[in-house]
């Protein structure tokens, strides 16, 4: 199979470039990560992140033929050749396919992603009805791979001020949790022309999410809650 890989090594003094690579691999039943690992076995200078290789850890998000995806769950058979593999857009490149995720993590931290409940803890679990628990479905499953946020034009322009779809989806995860008591503070934290309202409903995030989550819908719900508390 034919690949075109984005290559950049800051120590080399050479500008970033695209490298054509030909790999002898049977695409049947194999994932893009298998191919990248095989290429690295031939040429160990290629750097990428990977861990679980089954789509649950979120390490190996890359841009493939123009779409963000997880390399480990992207079947080779679905990819048009030459397969163009680039680092995630919108974040600084450290080397090859490895980007600096810190702007993404900083926005995640900014929504204070932890349950807040200052009531005395019961001796057993806090109760939650299956219906209340179901509100977390579609939100808690986020793996922080950044496929969505780095496909969002609003985040490209405002990485310092716009929380981005992943962070907002996590904000919603806590707002929606019947056990969390900080909804008002969470909404205050987001009621801002940039942090929340830079979302223009472009919905690239929905298209990019490898877990099938819908950040745009969650953002809409946050906006609805903000409207509701005004009237």
């Amino acid at each position: 199979m034919k690949f075109r890989l984005y290559r950049y090594n800051p120590e080399s003094g050479v500008q970033p470039r695209m490298q054509d690579v030909e790999l002898d691999i049977d695409p049947a039943g194999r994932m893009l990560l298998d191919a990248l690992i095989a290429i690295k076995a031939q040429d160990e200078t290629l750097s990428l992140r990977r861990s679980c290789r089954e789509g649950v850890c979120g390490s190996d998000a890359v841009n493939v033929n123009g779409r963000n995806c997880l390399a480990c769950i992207t079947p080779l058979s679905t990819l048009k050749e030459p397969v163009e593999v680039r680092p995630l857009p919108g974040l600084p490149v450290i080397r090859d396919l490895v980007v600096d995720m810190e702007p993404f993590y900083r926005q995640y931290r900014s929504i204070r992603p932890w349950l807040v409940n200052d009531e005395p803890e019961p001796e057993v679990e806090r109760l939650q009805s299956p219906a209340d628990r179901a509100l977390l479905d579609g939100a808690y499953e986020c793996i922080l791979c950044a496929c969505c946020t780095t496909s969002c034009p609003s985040f490209w322009w405002h990485p310092d001020t716009f929380v981005g779809p992943a962070g907002l989806l996590q904000a919603y995860r806590f707002i929606a949790d019947s056990r969390d008591e900080a909804t008002a503070a969470r909404l205050d934290n987001l009621e801002d022309p940039y942090r929340l309202y830079r979302c223009r409903g472009i919905m690239n995030c929905v298209d990019a999410c490898p877990k099938g989550l819908n950040p745009t819908e969650a953002i809409g719900r946050i906006k609805a809650l903000l409207v509701k508390r005004r009237v």
Partner: peptide, 20 residues
């Protein structure tokens, strides 16, 4: 140890009576 995780916010699936 499990109750503590629940208090920390772990989204356990629930039974009809609201328990883990």
């Amino acid at each position: 140890a499990v109750y503590e995780l629940e208090h920390m916010g772990l989204p356990f699936s629930r039974l009809d009576n609201g328990r883990i």
